[in-house]
Nucleic acid binder design. Structure first.
Lengths: 354, 354
DNA sequence: GCCAAGTGTGGGAGCGCTCCCACACTGTAG
DNA sequence: CTACAGTGTGGGAGCGCTCCCACACTTGGC
């Protein structure tokens, strides 16, 4: 065959251009003059290969542009080399807006060096939750990251039962059996309330998230704790139950204002609630922070744009994502499952609203 | 076999509990009393199956809780049943914040009925871009959705060369060879500027995004077009080149104000830039909208929280995500590639800044 | 009666990989 | 010399599916 002939039917060298057919292990083995087994060992980093063979194989791989076929590998190992990030869709926008992107960004950063794939699974209704169960039962991922767990969420229990390595963002309660990463919500809340007290607030209210979420509960606990530390009594009337949303914040703030018109500080368990609250306060003629000081939670993008710019508790969300991914990879690697917990510090970002 | 017999050594019925071993096609076939081929035909919806056989198979599937093994299927069909959503990480936060989540939400909604998996791929540097190329060349996805394309982005060309079905959010220029979905950026900008003119602005400036992105260019074109329609001349000095970011908006606004202190309207190609611009304007003692009217683009969450709340051009982002997914599925299904383009309407949301 | 075309079906081959067994070859000890 | 462990290697088997060929059986026309 002349070298420049119009390729009779040879399966194109690949490496560049449109891959006619991807090279297989066998072809690499043939080119390197070794057996399939040896190539496999090299690809998978086994030490049981002579230096000579290893080099020949590596050259062949480079020459052919060989990339292992994931499906074939999965078929025999039943590893999938992919993990799922599960997000209840309802929460997507509810969270401080950068939350979602930041978690993803952190997870993805941590996965970049691996050849793990990141699967995104949004669950928006019971039917999709059903599908997710089937999906997980079918062993389609090596592990799962779960965001925004509610106390009675059936998903963590399912993951536990299926023995799928998993890491939660947040936890369901004090004795969470699954691995999790969370921010020091109680500590952040405590800092915030202490700040309000220090600046002289006498009547500090709070706007909570849905209390079936541990985050919300923890932030409320931190509020309570700070008051008690300062020798103030915890007053139910100063607690506005809301749901992390702006509208919820508005409603709860109005009620609070009616119950306790003399309040002079509000710690809100989310920035969006705080933004809603600030609108209501202003509409009621209260100056911020002079009449009422306001602190939010999340340090999200809107905190910088409210009027006045909002003091807020910052949580290291991207770091949370990174940590979650790291824990999950560990858990996948060493099967004798040791549950891990990581708590990341929060920080009070002081602006003008308190 | 008696129906209620205690399954002699059958490999656990599955369906519930920890799946001891997932049932295979073969087991389903045995239980249904048919051959492997027939089960496969039923699973894949082939019409060439008798009603009787089909029913027997369906019952067996239900009883065993059979779920096809994706890897095995991929191995032989070389379909992967997964698509990638590719996001240059730099852009993640740059875009109007809900953008990212909304696109994902739309894509995921459209995919929910399919059994396509959504893979998320963030690209944050040239090395990862390299990995992405390898990844795509290795045929690991059936198609790709690409967000935030710059004019000279090498990725679309790669996708074209590899003949991977793909849909862009936005386009590179007028004759984009790949399928794409985009909002009517020029139209939205035109609406916004017309609104400014109608309210009496005499000197309307604009803050642009990076002009190597078609979105930015289109919004600038819309601005220009509206001016020309109104018989105004296009004045380069009223154009502030920026980059969609808040800081960029601040800088460009300051320059604009120096060059043309008499300006009384600004159309900003993103809300975050508009927010930055508003800060600068206020610092310069300008009242909004009385001295200077401001309009943003995206109708993102911060538009509702600036002071005053911002008039902004809304684009149907979730709908864009949905449409992108739909186009991609079409393109994957019918290989004789017909490129498609969809333009979605924008809308002017009027608040108090203009 | 024949052949031809159509319909439903079973099951072999094979996708590309890993696992593991068998083997060749070394070196060291008995 | 034999014995035996250790090291590197080749390649068969098999993961669970789809594809497709061969076959059985029907139906209908001549």
């Amino acid at each position: 065959m002349s070298p420049t002939a119009q390729r009779p039917e040879a399966p194109r060298p690949g490496a560049d251009g449109r891959a006619g057919a991807r090279p297989t292990l066998e072809e690499v083995a043939a080119l390197a003059g070794v057996g399939r087994g040896t190539v496999s060992r090299v690809v998978n980093g086994s030490p049981r290969v002579s230096a000579k063979a290893r080099e020949a194989v590596q050259n062949a791989i480079a020459e052919l542009g060989y990339v292992p076929n994931r499906a074939a590998r999965t078929l025999v190992t039943s590893r999938t080399d992919s993990i799922a990030l599960v997000v209840p869709e309802a929460e997507t926008r509810l969270f401080s807006e950068p939350y979602f992107s930041d978690i993803i960004s952190g997870v993805s950063a941590e996965l970049a060096e691996t050849d793990m794939q990141l699967l995104l699974i949004l669950v928006r209704n019971p039917r999709e939750r059903e599908r997710l169960s089937a999906y997980l039962s079918a062993q389609r991922v090596d592990g799962a990251l779960v965001v925004a767990v509610h106390r009675d969420d059936p998903l963590p229990a399912l993951l536990e039962r299926l023995e799928i390595p998993s890491v939660l963002a947040g936890r369901r309660g004090d004795l969470e059996p699954l691995s999790y990463v969370h921010a020091d919500n109680a500590g952040g809340a405590r800092m915030a309330v202490r700040h309000l007290l220090r600046r002289g607030c006498r009547q500090v209210a709070t706007l909570t998230g849905p209390l079936d979420m541990e985050v919300a509960q923890a932030r409320l606990d931190g509020y309570r704790r700070a008051l008690e530390e300062a020798g103030r009594s915890y007053d139910e009337e100063l607690v506005g139950l809301a749901d992390f949303t702006e509208e919820g914040g508005r409603v709860a703030m109005r009620e609070l204002l009616e119950r306790r018109p003399e309040l002079d500080g509000v710690f809100c368990a989310s920035d969006v609630m705080a933004a809603g609250a600030m609108q209501v306060l202003r509409a009621a003629g209260r100056r911020i922070p002079d009449d009422v000081a306001v602190i939010g939670f999340d340090d999200s993008i809107i905190a910088r744009h409210t009027d006045p710019p909002m003091t807020s508790v910052r949580q290291p969300i991207e770091e949370m994502g990174r940590t979650m991914a790291r824990l999950l990879l560990d858990e996948i690697a060493e099967r004798p499952r040791a549950r891990r917990q990581v708590v990341l510090a929060t920080e009070l970002i002081i602006r003008d609203s308190a």
